[in-house]
Design a protein around this nucleic acid. Structure first.
Lengths: 348, 348
DNA sequence: CTGAAAGCGCTTACAG
DNA sequence: CTGAAAGCGCTTACAG
């Protein structure tokens, strides 16, 4: 798992020797000059990649393994308050370690990803923290070649053990949300799911199911509605749930943003939180505190996840072993004012 | 205002010649080696600063004026959704220009500021965008010496014309908010102010006053309450305002976050928005859309301000002239569901 | 299209 | 504490 330190540094002249050309030719390829024979260029480019060439200043002391003081932090999108929580933790830990963080959004576009890789190569950052990114095998291979260690926060798919991932206990968090509602007497509990392709969404759903089943309750498929983690899909889910002939008395939704959409759907129907309906979210973004009424939710320690990601990348940079390729930080139920006992419940 | 390009590049040997020492000695100072006579060290450090020395790799082509592809983005704190809006715009424009952005939080601490400056020096970024930062004259002098051009978004004090600033039309925005409420028949309009030391807060307050005065209404000092831009101070302001013997029928608060606090204060008193009280905010953060009811607010184009900041820094890097040292982008009233006509108003 | 030569900016022993 | 020398990684003319 740990890279064996390359016996000789990967310099331009090393590459040149291996390719059977002179150093200036390799330099030309690196700088995108036109006047290199296609075959030569290809051979050199191949070597550059497989050997993981990275530009090293002149400084003789610039040995492999020394840190540049720059870490990349990559999101798909920067449009959610979710992102800033992670940035905060990553910035904090990086600052303590004397590193700067370079934040990018790649918008799920291959072209942006390629440009990001080009930038990483030219600026030679020490490592990368990728957030909810697919990190397909080709991207991983490229980072490997560049010798840029990566850590993934909140992996989208089944964790690939070759790259360390950091998540939270989504299943247990889902379970605790449902337990809380059941302890308040709720029996018909709706669930608004997150983006189905995401690993964490499935875990939260399964936690919801497990909570009901443990209490001896059936999972009513009518009460499980799809969502996309955003406000709009939460609003639609709320409209659907409370348009039902036999609506739930409580709703657990898999993100705070969707929960705010549920709030609005309830308000439009004249239903009050928590007097008429109890509502619980997931994440504990700042907006959960600011909702009216303040939202009961399952806290995900996003900033801590960011901090741990930085420490993990730094261990990898220094070639140290990491405890586990897969870490889940604990979620925590935060009870505020959006959950209450079932309205009008008769004693039995 | 534009730097005259230094006749000779600021290299280690240039500094050495000027200091009357050899290049290795300067190198030692730069790398913090201990074995340099204090007097020599001081002389060299002085020269390094006044000449604006910046580490330049070996590459012969690394002429002064070439871009590194890195921009610094500095916040005091990263704890508000406000920040992510600006990051989004800055990232977007920087990405288009092929630059990466290094984001830092300096927490208003001099020590963090110093560390940030050290980092800037070692990583030689092309320029800096500072958000709501004081940029006191010593910091400015240091950036000048490093030849790192800076732009300030949302300056805290009276704009210092030596550094370009980008803001929004706070005064006009405040005016438009009050106009909107007056057009709905409101006469008693409360105002929750922002942090008093900030320039933008004063402009919004003056806009509020101007709106009332234009309509021939008196400014009732009892209805103007201090705030700090955050949720908690908004909540307290709401409690105060609606504990008054003659409470307002509408409230304009100088940030969306404070407005959410006002929502909660109203909810606790059993007052409905907008049926009983109209409420209007400032910023148009995503949470304004997600509030229940969705919040009428004055939109500040934060992402656009970030984009413009990047373009401005890049002009400065290239030594181009900028149109104006002070730009204000237009605010825009966004009407949603939190404002309505005065309740129970008689026809006249 | 490619290489031998010269050179740049910087740093590391080494000597004093 | 300091400098002359050697050397590193890279690049730019220049010649062919």
């Amino acid at each position: 798992m740990a890279d064996s330190p390359s016996p000789a540094a990967v310099t331009i002249s090393a590459i040149a020797a291996e390719a059977g050309v002179s150093a200036p030719t390799v330099s030309r390829v690196l700088n995108g000059r036109g006047d290199v024979a296609p075959a030569t260029r290809e051979r050199i480019e191949g070597l550059l990649r497989t050997r993981g060439y990275r530009r090293r200043g002149s400084k003789a002391g610039d040995k492999a393994g020394e840190m540049v003081g720059l870490l990349d932090l990559v999101f798909n999108d920067l449009d959610s308050p979710w992102a800033v929580e992670i940035i905060r933790g990553v910035e904090d830990a990086a600052h303590d370690a004397g590193s700067g963080i370079v934040v990018s959004a790649i918008h799920r576009r291959a072209s942006s990803t390629r440009q990001w890789l080009r930038n990483v190569r030219s600026r030679t950052s020490d490592g990368a923290v990728l957030v909810t990114t697919d990190l397909d095998s080709s991207l991983r291979a490229e980072l490997d070649e560049l010798h840029v260690p990566a850590v993934v926060i909140d992996p989208v798919g089944v964790p690939d053990l070759a790259v360390p991932t950091i998540g939270s206990t989504n299943w247990a968090g889902g379970l605790s949300a449902v337990d809380h509602l059941i302890s308040r007497g709720h029996r018909r509990i709706g669930f608004v799911a997150g983006r189905p392709e995401l690993w964490c969404s499935r875990a939260r759903l399964d936690g919801y199911r497990a909570g009901l089943e443990t209490a001896g309750l059936d999972v009513d498929p009518d009460l499980v509605v799809p969502g996309e983690f955003d406000y709009e899909s939460g609003f639609r889910a709320g409209e659907h749930l409370f348009g039902l002939a036999d609506p739930p008395t409580a709703v657990f939704s898999a993100s705070d943003q969707m929960t705010l959409g549920v709030y609005e759907a309830l308000r439009r129907r004249g239903l009050r939180v928590p007097a008429d309906v109890s509502v619980i979210g997931f994440d504990d973004l700042p907006e959960a505190r600011w909702a009216s009424p303040p939202l009961t939710t399952v806290r995900q320690p996003l900033a801590d996840m960011g901090r741990l990601a930085v420490r993990t990348v730094h261990r990898l940079v220094r070639g140290e072993a990491i405890e586990s390729p897969r870490v889940e930080l604990a979620t925590e139920l935060v009870v505020r004012d959006s959950t209450a006992a079932v309205p009008g419940r008769v004693s039995g």
